[in-house]
Design a protein around this nucleic acid. Structure first.
Length: 141
DNA sequence: GCCAACGTTGGC
DNA sequence: GCCAACGTTGGC
């Protein structure tokens, strides 16, 4: 299957990009939403995801790679349906791409991030992925 | 099975 | 701090 792309949100207060870079790898735990869970279950090793800082920053700050496919969330009650994936940082974006910049771009208006603002793990199409990468190379969104 | 109440998330 | 979106819960 072709590589898939994702966007994963975290409040930097709780878990920030710098922390993931520092750790070298991270378990994406604590997801308690079924749509997000299904997305995580669809992830394959090698898929890439934007790390998005919600609430504080409200911007995509880096790229990470899925290194281990979904398995039961050890922070959840035994028998509950929640899962985690393991991720590793690939690189920081040259410039963060803000939510405002994404909203302002008609090409990105249909993203999960926009249409379902509360979804913490969303799909990104290859076109959207490329487009956001291109934006991240420019100084302003 | 419907729906109102309530809690949480996240942008503004 | 407010509010919209949306998920969950509980009464009926």
């Amino acid at each position: 299957m072709a590589k898939q792309y994702w966007l994963m949100k975290s409040e930097p207060d709780a878990y920030a990009w710098d922390q993931l870079v520092h750790d070298g790898t991270g378990m994406w735990d604590g997801v308690r939403n079924h749509t997000a869970k299904l997305n995580m279950m669809a992830m394959k090793v090698g898929d890439e995801a934007f790390f998005y800082h919600s609430n504080i920053g409200k911007e995509c700050v880096g790229i990470m790679r899925v290194t281990e496919e979904s398995f039961p969330d050890p922070t959840a009650e035994p028998g509950s349906p929640w899962v985690v994936v393991r991720v590793a940082p690939v690189r920081a974006l040259t410039h963060p791409v803000t939510l405002a910049a994404i909203k302002a771009d008609p090409k990105l208006a249909d993203m999960d991030l926009i249409r379902q603002s509360r979804l913490s793990v969303g799909r990104v199409t290859p076109d959207e992925w490329k487009h956001i990468l291109k934006k991240s190379e420019k100084a302003e969104g």
